[in-house]
Design a binder for these strands. Structure first.
Length: 360
DNA sequence: TGCCAGGCCCTCTTTAGGGCCTT
């Protein structure tokens, strides 16, 4: 299984062949996904130009998406996505197929940073700082301060900010801890608003041996295959997924456990390796400091157990799926985040105050 | 032969040591 792009309960896409194929595989009983891979040209740059998705109200959903290798002058950061159709599954009577053609603008290159015009001045914060700190700020304004300022300005400008925020939990599985030598082998996202197309998951071909199968259960044979996309091939799809979830004029916030020192630096390194950059308007939040704050507020000694699995046990959240698989951990993180923000009485605006950018 | 991830946080403290977190 290599790709999932799912709805309320998640769907599963599993290309068994890399090119010229349509695959149907069962997922969670009645759910299935149809994936079609098409080779348009010999160039090995994957573009996702067509995406058939899906959708089914009620109990079942299907996603079909078509990927093809781009040709000509297309680039990784500029491609198009079309939602072309959906499959309706009828467990007792087979399929009924209904195709809908709908274009979605998914151009990813040259995206304007809507906050950039507000980064040069910051009077209200300057008034609160000492002269020494002010001088430091003027000389060494950090990206973190800027990103926080973006959010503060956004809150000030728009009282409906919370409606404009897209919070996406994510997780990666890798071949190890080293950013330089290790590689991502699985990645998953979940838009916490839920709804159709709210989850995305894919295995990633690392192009190297997987030494830590005992951790996540992802074996060498599962990912080092021609039908599993490499990170370079997957990045355009990730960008499209995130963009498809972003509300125009809104803020995308990606949340992970230990994001600041593991997931984000790792992701940043993978993007860099593929000559790509994480979009500057993506904000990140690390739930690890939130967990430490909760434990501290409860009187627990810090450091106490604040791993994702320890938090699952602390909040008495049942284990669903396999721990250390990206999508399972993402689902768990979404539930843990609810508890953490509840315990800390932290509204979205407060949560955003702890956000940072990948460039930090 | 030595290194082998890196950052945060706390303590038995202060500039070091060690545990925790991510795979």
């Amino acid at each position: 299984m290599t790709c999932r792009w799912g709805g309320d309960r998640g769907c599963n896409a599993s290309p068994a062949l890399w090119r010229n194929m349509v695959v149907l595989l069962p997922f969670r009983g009645n759910e299935e996904v149809v994936v079609e891979w098409r080779e348009v040209a010999s160039r090995q740059t994957l573009l996702m130009s067509e995406c058939f998705c899906i959708s089914i109200t009620g109990m079942l959903s299907y996603f079909t998406y078509s990927l093809h290798f781009g040709s000509g002058r297309d680039s990784v950061g500029n491609s198009s996505l079309k939602v072309l159709g959906s499959h309706k599954y009828e467990p007792e009577g087979g399929y009924s197929r209904k195709w809908i053609s709908r274009s979605v603008n998914t151009k990813t290159g040259g995206k304007k940073d809507t906050f950039s015009s507000k980064t040069s001045i910051r009077p209200e914060i300057s008034e609160e700082t000492s002269s020494i700190k002010l001088n430091k700020y003027e000389l060494e304004t950090t990206e973190l301060e800027r990103s926080q300022y973006y959010v503060q300005q956004k809150i000030a400008d728009n009282k409906d900010l919370e409606r404009l925020v897209t919070i996406i939990a994510f997780d990666i599985e890798t071949t190890g801890f080293g950013r330089e030598n290790d590689r991502v082998i699985e990645i998953a996202f979940q838009d916490l608003r839920g709804g159709k197309n709210s989850t995305f998951q894919s295995l990633v071909n690392p192009g190297r041996y997987v030494p830590n199968t005992h951790i996540h259960g992802i074996s060498n044979n599962m990912v080092n295959r021609s039908d599993v996309p490499s990170m370079e091939q997957l990045i355009p799809i990730l960008l499209k997924y995130i963009q498809s979830r972003q509300i125009p004029g809104g803020v995308v916030v990606l949340i992970a456990h230990n994001a600041r020192t593991f997931d984000v630096p790792f992701l940043k390194r993978e993007f860099s390796r593929c000559s790509c950059k994480i979009p500057p308007d993506w904000l990140f939040i690390d739930t690890l400091p939130l967990a430490r704050a909760v434990m501290k507020s409860k009187g627990s000694k810090v450091p106490s157990k604040v791993s994702l699995q320890a938090l699952r046990e602390y909040y008495d959240i049942p284990l669903v799926g396999s721990a250390h698989r990206a999508l399972s951990d993402v689902h768990l993180l979404a539930l843990v985040l609810q508890r953490l923000t509840h315990d800390l009485k932290l509204p979205i605006s407060g949560l955003l105050q702890s956000s940072f950018k990948a460039s930090n």
